[in-house]
Design a protein around this nucleic acid. Sequence first.
DNA 1: CGTATTTGACCGGT
DNA 2: ACCGGTCAAATACG
Length: 310
Amino acid sequence: MESIIWPENLLNDRNKAIRELLRGREFTNQLGVMLSGPLPADGSVSAEDLVMKIMGSFSNTISILDSSESDEVSQIPASSRRLDSPCRDGRKSEDSGQSSKTSAAYKDRRGCYKRRKTSHTSIKLTPNLIDDGHAWRKYGQKVILNARHPRNYFRCTHKFDQGCQATKQVQMTENEPAMHKTTYHGFHTCKNLLKAPQIILDSTHPATDSSYLLCFDSDRIEKSSDRSLYPHLAKQEHKQNFHMSDYHMSPDLTTIDSPGPMTVLSPGSDHGDVISSGVYSCTASTHSSFGMDLMGSVDFADDDVFQFAF
DNA sequence: CGTATTTGACCGGT
DNA sequence: ACCGGTCAAATACG
């Protein structure tokens, strides 16, 4: 008797589907950058919102297909799986004072959660904490090796009632002035946007002379199968590849009204082109009153930390 | 009293 | 074995 779980043709179809979705997501991303020019007259439904929804749909489908590959448990929705999982309780160590690491209750937790697979990520560096308009629930904090500040872990509040898979990590950077580095994983699929994103002003934070708020969209291309879709990425170290879009800035750090996308144009490149270190000309187009042209340089500093100097 | 945060243990990838 | 991401009981909060 055979034990074929994924017949070869099904596996091929699955890979084809993922490839197509990756293509579609990339095209949507490029469309989003292109749409940053003309904006809708009224604030009905912005093109960016639509693009973000489409991107979210693609990303979620990809991750669903991706995680079903070697994991049959994931076919059960995450929200319902938790409830009757054998690992949801039976773990207690501090009140009795005795170690229970060898008890059977611990072993039952094995395999009760999956680690996040590669999903869309974007990184923001901000001098202040940002209220991005979504409801987040903190679920962890870790001391990171060789980092002075701990990393904080957040998930969407509506992970369980709406199955929203968005998460973010927030960590203070080492360099001076200290910045809040926020890494977003995945897209929100919940429909509970509270308000427009805004900077949370910290009264203890001195009004800085430098004024910038950064957002880099980074699509990490790590699988070799994905690389064929991004031939221009294959030549470089993946950590140096960033799509720049969804780029917000505020001239004085006190307001950021209706942030819109900012397009980065490097000489001789198209919208959404992959950039690397160098000097780039930026054109900002936002809903707000300030539309500006900026010159800046992009430096890729130590792992994942990059700066944009004006 | 329901919801959010804290915090140490567990787990999986490397 | 180590490190970082996640879980969940205890605790804090409104």
